[in-house]
Design a protein around this nucleic acid. Structure first.
Length: 259
DNA sequence: ATGGTCGATCCTCGA
């Protein structure tokens, strides 16, 4: 089972690259973030023509998530959004049982900076995600996997430019990292760290020649609860996909499971 | 020393 998370930064702008990548990499389940597209405008054919079913949760212009899965893997119990959200809430999470896993695909709030009003929103959103995760882990019969763009570098080695001693920076702040550790305390394991101590990045800013200088961040993660950790075999970042013409600013992360 | 992008949408905002 090849399970993928990839922030594509617009599914319509990325359609050609996403299609070619699927053809090469043959994922079984593909969790995308920042589709940046209304459900009405979503290019379903991109997936369906390749033999994938797709469940979408989008909004015009920003955010938006989807899960595509090889036909036959059988989507069940699909849910959209965090519990008790209004209809106008950001479209940032979609959950489905597919391929024998409980898959929680998330696009965590970026937060912008610590003095932005988006920062407390991020902390609150993460706390509410934490409640969803605990509830899924507690109640779900299938092994739980939560993957996506978490907009968190869990440790200083997960960014090219860690904060100075005593400094608080977005994606690295004590409060963000405490919420991240809360996910781990709930029983989830960071699969990348489960397999390796390697420093790898998943995101490089388009600005300031981020990729050329390897000024990157490891902010796209695959978290797995215990039964799924036992089935996990590898986690790889497809850094090559960040190269070339019109790449997303994030690389895909591929986790494999023996099911 | 500094700034160097991209995408969607409206000519700015968000990342």
């Amino acid at each position: 089972m090849r399970l993928v998370t990839w922030n594509v930064n617009s599914i319509r702008a990325r359609a050609e690259r996403v299609g070619a990548w699927i053809d090469r990499q043959q994922p079984d389940v593909l969790c995308l973030q920042e589709t940046r597209c209304s459900d009405e405008d979503f290019p379903r054919d991109l997936f369906e023509d390749r033999g994938y079913a797709v469940e979408i949760f989008g909004q015009p212009g920003r955010n938006g998530v989807c899960i595509a899965a090889r036909e036959g893997l059988d989507f069940k119990r699909v849910s959209r959004g965090l519990p008790d959200e209004g209809v106008d809430a950001d479209k940032r999470v979609i959950v489905a049982t597919v391929g024998g896993l409980r898959v929680i695909n998330v696009y965590v709030v970026n937060g912008e900076s610590l003095d932005s009003e988006k920062y407390p929103y991020k902390l609150d959103w993460m706390a509410r995600l934490g409640e969803l995760l605990e509830s899924e882990i507690r109640s779900c019969v299938e092994p739980v996997v939560c993957l996506g763009d978490f907009n968190i570098a869990p440790e200083d080695r997960d960014t090219w430019k860690p904060p100075q001693e005593g400094e608080q920076k977005i994606l690295c702040s004590d409060k963000e990292r405490a919420l991240w550790r809360g996910f781990l305390d709930a029983g989830l394991h960071d699969l990348h760290r489960h397999f390796t101590d390697e420093e790898v990045y998943t995101f490089w800013d388009y600005r300031r020649l981020g990729f050329q200088k390897n000024n990157g961040w490891r902010i796209d993660h695959v978290l797995a609860a215990l039964p799924a950790v036992g089935r996990a075999r590898s986690v790889e970042v497809d850094r090559e996909e960040r190269k070339g013409k019109q790449p997303s600013d994030h690389a895909p992360v591929i986790a494999t499971f023996e099911m």
